[in-house]
Amino acid sequence: MSDEPLDQVANLRDVAHSDPRLRPGVLWRSAQPQVGDGTPREVDAWPPATVLDLRSAAEVPGTGHPLLAPGTEVHSVPLLDHAGDPNALEQRRRPLVDVYLSMLEQGTGLLRAADLVASSPAPVLVHCAAGKDRTGLVVALVLRLVGVPREAVLADFALTTDAMPDVMRRLLATSPLPPGADLSTLPAEYFTAPTDALAAVLDVWDAHEGGTAGWAIAHGAAPDLVDRLRAQLL
């Protein structure tokens, strides 16, 4: 059992570690922050200037976002409408590769998140509930759009596996399971960061004419998105 305190944001890291060309202090990723969290040890200042919350409406408490404060702007960019719905158990048992590829089919939320990363004051924090699946896709998209190598993107994604015990401790401490829910019925990959699932997404982007940028443009991204991301992150 981890000794990480419950009042520290779990699975938090600066994605600049992925590539020496990335500027530190610009883009962070994490699991969901919670009321009462202290200033994370990993950063010099808290809260971030911009927060992208990828959770569905059912996952967000009625009290609002815990990081909403003067100087911090929070954007809601839900990526999975069924997340947090206790009646959507079958959705939560789908193989993660299917879940990830389904997020690509629409593309709108992923591209809106990438556009906000490009245009918002830094540091920008991207989070969902665990900071694993939805956050993983948004971060992967942004990193690939600015040319971070595929293997570096997968390596950053894989780091979440080690963070999952702390993530689950915090989630279960504040959000008890609905009646009848049983974590043991979920696929084991739901408690890790399976690189093969993310690799399937990268395959789609790599196979597209023009690569990841070509995929983004084909799904409605602004023509200058890559240029603005590069100006923000590099």
Rank of each mutant, 00 (worst) to 15 (best):
A130H: 11
P40T: 06
G147D: 09
D19F: 04
L177T: 13
I217A: 15
W215E: 05
L54V: 04
P24A: 08
R112G: 01
R170W: 11
P5L: 00
A113W: 11
V142W: 00
L145C: 05
R169T: 06
G109V: 12
C128M: 04
P24L: 02
T174E: 12
E73F: 13
L186C: 01
V126Y: 08
L6K: 01
A193R: 02
D44E: 14
V153A: 10
F157H: 14
E209H: 12
P47G: 07
L12H: 02
V26H: 05
D166S: 15
A197C: 09
P78T: 13
A140Y: 07
S30M: 07
A130T: 06
L202G: 12
T108Q: 15
P78Y: 13
D196P: 02
D85T: 00
D166I: 00
D37I: 12
D182G: 04
A155L: 03
A45R: 15
A218L: 10
A155H: 10
R23G: 03
L68W: 10
L186A: 05
W46C: 05
H82Y: 12
V226T: 14
L12A: 03
Q106P: 05
L141N: 11
R94N: 02
T108V: 15
L68I: 00
V138K: 06
V60N: 02
A193E: 01
P179I: 14
G107E: 04
L225N: 01
L141H: 12
A49N: 10
V153G: 08
E189R: 12
V138Q: 02
D81N: 10
M168A: 11
E105T: 11
A152P: 08
H127P: 00
V167C: 10
P20A: 02
K132Q: 09
T212I: 05
V139Y: 10
L80D: 10
L6F: 11
L234W: 15
E189M: 11
V9Q: 07
P5D: 01
L125K: 06
G38T: 09
T185N: 10
A231G: 14
G220M: 03
P24W: 06
R170G: 05
L101V: 03
A207E: 14
P20V: 08
A49C: 12
E4K: 14
N11R: 12
E73W: 13
G36E: 06
D224A: 11
V43C: 05
M164R: 09
L229T: 08
T160A: 04
A155I: 01
S102F: 04
A10S: 14
L101Q: 07
C128F: 07
V77E: 00
V15K: 02
L159F: 07
R13T: 04
A45M: 03
V43Y: 00
E73L: 15
L6M: 10
A31F: 04
R23H: 09
F157S: 04
A222C: 02
R21I: 00
D166F: 03
D81I: 12
H17R: 13
V226C: 05
G36K: 01
Y100H: 15
G136L: 11
D115F: 07
K132I: 08
E105G: 05
H65F: 03
P5F: 10
V138E: 03
A83R: 14
V51N: 09
D162L: 14
G64H: 00
